[in-house]
């Protein structure tokens, strides 16, 4: 799916609704994406999302839970608390990135 609207903005998304263009994302949009999946953004949430953004920019891949833990410094336990049940996918969605491709 190419163009779609989120909160009155035209953006590119895939079939599931994940943003496909890195530069179409900003933090205002992230707030809307988060609220759409029932996540109420706090400072801790932002820390994870900002890590995902910068890590993707540097490496071209969405960080897995393990990478957010080991490199980003946010524990796995906290990630499951902040983004319940499916942290990796929820973080990727809010950060406007593809789902992680790594297994671990």
């Amino acid at each position: 799916m190419p163009l779609a609207s989120i909160d009155g903005r035209s953006v590119h998304v895939d079939d599931e609704g994940f943003l496909t263009e890195y530069d179409e994302w900003d933090e205002d949009l992230a707030k809307v994406l988060a609220s759409q999946i029932g996540v109420d953004m706090t400072d801790d949430h932002w820390k994870a999302i900002r890590f995902l953004r910068s890590d993707f920019k540097e490496h071209g891949e969405t960080a897995t839970i393990r990478r957010v833990d080991v490199v980003g410094g946010i524990s796995t336990k906290d990630l499951f608390r902040l983004f319940p049940k499916k942290p990796a996918k929820k973080m990727a969605y809010i950060a406007g990135l593809p789902k992680p491709r790594g297994c671990v």
Binding site: S5, G17, P84
Partner: peptide
């Protein structure tokens, strides 16, 4: 901004 663009789908995370 255009009004004829469909709203983006929201992934189903099956939380509920």
């Amino acid at each position: 901004m255009s009004t004829d663009i469909a709203p983006a789908p929201v992934p189903k995370f099956d939380d509920d």
